[in-house]
Amino acid sequence: MPLEAYSRGSVYWARGRVEYEGRPITEYYRVSTGASTKAGAHEWIQRETERQRRRYLLGDEAEQLTMGDAVQLYDAKPADAKCLLDIVDALGDDFLEKPIVEVTPRYLRDLGFRLKPNASTDTMWRSIVTPLRAVINNAHDLGKCPPIKVKRYTDKERIDQDLNRGKQSRVERKPSDRAWIAAFCAHADVHNAALAHFMFETAARIDQAISILPEHLDLLRKRVWLKAAKGHPAQWVDISHDMMIELANLPPKRPLNRKTGKRMEARVFGYATPTGYRKRWLTICRDAGIAPLSAHAAGRHGFYTELRVRQGVDPVSAAKAGRWKSVSLPDQIYAHAEDDQAMLREQIRTGRVQRTEDETGIPLKQKGK
C-alpha cells in the first residue's frame, strides 16, 4: 500500500510504503508528518516519496549533492550566470550547502517573494525560479539527481503581488503603426530611421538587428542574414526593394566599447548592445511628439498588428513571415485590437451600424411609405 495520510488527534500521520512502478522500495511507515492539515501531510508524503525514489534510483550520491555542487556543474549563459550570482550573494553559504533533495518547487517559488519582494511574479519566475530550475535539471541530465517541475505563479498570486507593490504587471504594449514610424523617421538620424524601418518590416528582435554586420547583407538578392534567437535558427530574411535601397545607402558605424574605450567592428546600425538605442530613441520620440515605444513594440508588435489587424493577413502567413513557430502565440501576444471600446459598446446597443438603406439600395424611410 502506498503512503497515505491519516489523522491522529491534531496531527496527521503517514502509513504505508514508498512504491516505484507498483513495487514497494521501503519498509512499512507509521510515522508522524508533523503537519496539522491534510494538505501539509500530503506535501510531506510527496517529499518523502521523491527522496526515497531518488535513493532507490541514484543511490546515496543524490542525498549528498548540494546546490553549490549543482551550480558548479551548470554551464550558465551570461544572463543566467548573473541571476545565479545575485542569488548566491543574497543567500550565502547556507544556500550553497543546502542538499538538493531539500529544494522543492514551493521553495523555489517562495524564494521569489523572499529575494524580490517588490518585483512582479513574472520577474521572480524569470530571475529566480527559471535559472535554479535549470541548474537542478542539468544535474539530473548528468545522472546526479531527479528532475524538478515547478508550477508557475498563479494569476491570483500575480494580482496580489501587484497590489502589494502598487504597480501593475503585464501592461499591454502599444504597437507602432505606419504613422508612428513615419513621424519617428522624420526626426531620426539615418541609422535609427533605418533600424526602425527594418524591425517594423521584418519583425527582427533588437538583438538580431544590432548584430548585423556589413557581410550579413546580400542586397543584390534583397535579403539579410539574421542570427538565431528564441527557438528559431539563423536564416536569410527577405526585405523590400525600398529597404534594400535604404541599407545600400547606410554607411556602417563602429560603436564604442565603453568598457575598453576602443571602437568595435563596424555594424550596420551602429549599436553595440541591445539597450544602446534607448536614450536616443526617447529623444527622437520627444522631438517628434509621439509616444515613446521600445524597439520590441515598434518592431515585432507593430509588424504583427499591421499584418493581422490592419491588413487582415491570415495567421499562418503572418506567423511565418515573422518567424514564429506557433500560429496561435502571436495572435495572443502580438496582435493588438485597435477598435475604440466605447464605440464597440455603442454598436452592441444599436445593432452594430445604423443602416439607411436595405439590400436593394432603397432608403428605409421611403420603403416604409
Rank of each mutant, 00 (worst) to 15 (best):
D207R: 10
D238M: 03
S211G: 08
I212C: 04
E201P: 05
A183K: 08
L219G: 00
E172C: 14
T154P: 02
H197Q: 15
R170H: 11
K230G: 04
E157K: 13
R173V: 10
P147F: 14
A248V: 04
Q161G: 03
L250T: 07
F198N: 04
D218A: 06
V129C: 10
E201W: 07
P214H: 10
F200K: 02
I245Q: 00
H187V: 00
A229G: 08
A204W: 04
W180S: 01
L247F: 07
V171T: 15
G231F: 13
D141F: 05
C185R: 14
L195A: 06
R165F: 06
D238L: 09
H232V: 08
M244P: 00
P131Y: 14
A228N: 00
H197W: 08
R221H: 14
P255V: 11
Y153E: 01
I239C: 05
R158E: 02
D177A: 12
E157I: 04
P147A: 13
N257A: 00
I239H: 13
S169F: 14
N257M: 06
L132P: 02
G261D: 01
P146E: 07
C145M: 10
P255R: 08
W180Q: 07
K174F: 00
P146S: 14
M244N: 02
V224E: 07
P146T: 12
R223H: 08
V237H: 00
A183I: 02
H140M: 12
F184V: 03
E172Y: 12
S240N: 05
K151P: 01
G143M: 07
A229V: 02
L217Q: 06
M199S: 09
P255K: 03
K149S: 02
A134V: 09
K151C: 10
H241P: 03
I245N: 01
P146Q: 14
S169N: 13
A139K: 11
H241D: 05
E172M: 11
D155E: 11
K156C: 07
H241C: 02
D242Y: 13
N164A: 13
W180G: 03
A188W: 10
H191T: 04
W180L: 01
A188T: 02
D155T: 15
V224N: 03
H140R: 08
A234D: 14
D189T: 09
N138S: 15
K253D: 02
G231I: 11
L219H: 05
